[in-house]
Lab assay of single mutants.
Amino acid sequence: GKRLNIQLKKGTEGLGFSITSRDVTIGGSAPIYVKNILPRGAAIQDGRLKAGDRLIEVNGVDLVGKSQEEVVSLLRSTKMEGTVSLLVFRQED
């Protein structure tokens, strides 16, 4: 696979993607993946982020050990017109 650095500018329609966690172990944390890209928002305008990408970092914060809720609040904490920096891991087909 490969790592991608993606910067998304948060506009009025938001970042435009949803996340999910897979393989949750009890008391553990699961990897966070991009669930889908919404028809409006920064992600589809940028065009690089894809469903199935694994989020590794948000704005330089390592997501290991973070819950899905914590990751959502990290993403939401970005101000309007601010930039969210994502490091994602993509499995090659």
Rank of each mutant, 00 (worst) to 15 (best):
P31T: 10
G41V: 01
V61Y: 07
S85C: 08
I6N: 03
G60T: 03
L63R: 02
T25Q: 09
D93P: 11
A51H: 05
A42G: 07
L74S: 05
E13D: 14
G60I: 01
A51R: 07
R48V: 04
S29E: 14
Y33D: 04
F17C: 03
I56T: 05
G14D: 07
Q45T: 12
G82P: 05
E13K: 08
Q91S: 10
D53K: 00
N36R: 14
E13G: 07
I56Q: 06
V34A: 14
R3M: 14
V24C: 12
G28K: 03
R76D: 15
L4S: 03
P31C: 09
V24H: 11
G47N: 04
K50D: 04
E70V: 07
Q68I: 14
V24E: 07
G82N: 15
L86V: 04
L75Y: 04
N36K: 12
S73P: 04
Q45F: 06
G28Q: 04
S29L: 11
T25A: 13
T12Q: 14
D62P: 14
V84Q: 02
P31R: 08
S18R: 08
N5Y: 13
E92P: 12
Q68L: 12
L75W: 04
L86P: 01
L15K: 00
E92A: 08
K50V: 06
S29A: 14
M80L: 14
Q68A: 09
K79W: 11
I32G: 01
K9M: 10
E70R: 05
R90H: 04
P39W: 07
R40A: 04
N59I: 00
E81A: 12
I56S: 04
N36I: 04
R54T: 06
R90S: 04
L86N: 00
E13Y: 08
G47R: 05
L87V: 11
V72G: 10
E70M: 08
V84W: 02
L8M: 11
E57F: 06
G65D: 08
P39I: 04
G65M: 05
K9P: 07
T78L: 12
L15Y: 04
S67Y: 05
F89R: 06
L55H: 00
K2E: 09
S85I: 06
S29M: 10
L38M: 14
A43V: 00
L4Q: 04
S67F: 04
Q68Y: 14
K66L: 12
T20P: 01
K2V: 07
L38D: 07
V71R: 01
A42M: 03
T83A: 11
R40P: 00
Q91N: 15
K79I: 07
G52H: 05
K50A: 11
V71I: 08
T20Q: 12
D53N: 01
V24M: 08
K2D: 07
G60N: 07
N36A: 12
S77G: 14
V24N: 10
S18D: 15
T78A: 15
E57D: 06
T12F: 09
T78M: 08
L49W: 00
I32H: 12
V61L: 08
P39Y: 05
L49R: 01
N5P: 06
S77Q: 13
G65R: 06
Y33H: 10
G14A: 04
G11H: 11
E92C: 07
T25R: 11
R3S: 11
I26P: 12
G11Y: 04
I44Q: 10
I32R: 01
L15H: 03
R48D: 02
E69I: 07
L49E: 04
F17N: 00
E57S: 11
T78C: 10
D46S: 04
R40W: 13
F89G: 15
A30H: 12
I6R: 01
S18T: 14
D62E: 03
L4A: 02
D93R: 09
I19W: 03
L74C: 15
L63F: 03
Q7W: 09
L49F: 01
D62H: 09
G52Q: 03
Q68D: 12
K35Q: 07
S73N: 09
E92S: 11
L55I: 14
V61Q: 10
M80P: 14
L75N: 01
F89D: 15
A42K: 03
G52N: 07
S18Y: 04
V72C: 07
Q45E: 12
G11W: 02
R90G: 01
V72P: 02
A51W: 03
L86F: 05
P31Q: 10
K79H: 15
V71S: 03
V64K: 15
F89L: 11
V88D: 03
K9T: 13
D46V: 00
D62C: 13
G82V: 08
S85P: 02
L63P: 02
M80N: 07
A43N: 01
A51Q: 11
T12M: 15
K35S: 12
L15W: 09
E81N: 14
N36H: 09
R48H: 06
I26L: 14
G14E: 05
S21H: 11
I19H: 01
E81T: 10
R54N: 08
V71H: 01
D93N: 14
G82A: 14
G65H: 07
R3K: 14
D93A: 09
N5I: 09
T20R: 06
Q45D: 15
L63M: 13
G14Y: 02
V24W: 15
F17L: 03
E57A: 12
L49Y: 01
G82D: 13
